[in-house]
Simulated scan of single mutants.
Amino acid sequence: MAQTVRTLHAPVKALFSGTTLLIARNSLLGVILPLRMEAAGYPVALTGVVMAVYYMGLAFGGLYTKRVILRIGHIRAFSAFAALMAAVCLAYGFLSFQPHGSCCG
């Protein structure tokens, strides 16, 4: 019985590990982004709107994901979405979080 559980757990171990890392990093992004916006001097209301839209996109993305998984498969969909999320997180590093009116005042 122990051998059967071990053999059943092995194929999904990588998927569980990847999902855990994805959720942990997404949570950290939800903390870092508003802190960087606040440090740059953006209004609190704008930071709230940005974060609300971020999580609305996450919710609506969950509705669209089912079609993508059925079309290309769960492994390719997971890889594509993880790569997309990594690219977006890296793009935050290239953005300057400076309000538009701060350079001339």
Rank of each mutant, 00 (worst) to 15 (best):
A2F: 09
Q3F: 01
L8D: 01
L8G: 13
P11C: 06
V12Y: 02
V12K: 07
K13D: 02
A14K: 04
L15K: 10
S17D: 02
T19V: 12
T20Q: 05
I23R: 13
A24Y: 02
R25V: 14
N26P: 00
N26K: 08
S27H: 09
S27C: 02
L28W: 10
L29A: 06
V31R: 01
L33T: 10
R36M: 10
M37N: 10
A39E: 05
A39Q: 13
A40E: 06
A40W: 06
V44K: 08
L46M: 14
G48W: 07
V49H: 06
V49C: 07
V53G: 01
Y55D: 15
G57E: 10
G57H: 03
A59C: 12
A59H: 11
G62K: 10
G62L: 15
L63S: 13
V68F: 09
I69A: 12
I69H: 01
I69G: 00
R71N: 05
R71S: 13
G73A: 01
G73L: 01
G73F: 00
R76A: 07
R76N: 03
F78I: 02
S79W: 02
S79D: 05
A80Y: 07
F81N: 08
F81R: 02
A82K: 00
L84E: 08
M85E: 11
A86W: 00
A86S: 02
A87W: 05
V88N: 04
V88G: 04
V88D: 00
A91H: 06
Y92T: 13
G93L: 14
F94A: 12
F97R: 12
Q98P: 00
Q98C: 06
P99Y: 09
H100K: 04
C103I: 06
